[in-house]
């Protein structure tokens, strides 16, 4: 199961500058674990205490996974996972 993961500028230090990388998994959590094996350090930027970090938005295709099961969101072959930094402040 291969998915394309689109990486934001701020996290490209973990992917050798690549804008997108391939990963495998049937859920977002598995995709992130697979990313971590090839691009060490990514996981802790995405996950905190077993949930998605509040500093990032993650989408499977056009859906924000916060409204679609979070880390348990289903991912299938050919899907695109897009990671964007959350833009927020006070």
């Amino acid at each position: 199961m291969a998915v394309i993961v689109s990486i934001p500028t701020i996290l490209r230090t973990h992917t050798g500058g690549k804008k997108s990388v391939e990963a495998a998994g049937e859920t977002l959590a598995q995709v992130i674990d697979d990313l971590e094996t090839n691009h060490g350090g990514l996981k802790q930027r995405l996950v905190k205490e077993g949930a998605l970090h509040r500093f990032v938005n993650v989408y499977v295709n056009d859906e924000d996974v916060r409204f679609a099961g979070g880390l348990e969101a289903a991912v299938k072959d050919g899907d695109t996972v897009t990671i964007l930094p959350a833009v927020a402040g006070g």
């Binding site: 938005n57 924000d64 959350a86 927020a88």
Partner: peptide
């Protein structure tokens, strides 16, 4: 006192 981009609009 806070702002946050709407995640779907941001995508």
């Amino acid at each position: 006192t806070f702002y946050r981009f709407d995640s779907m609009e941001q995508l």
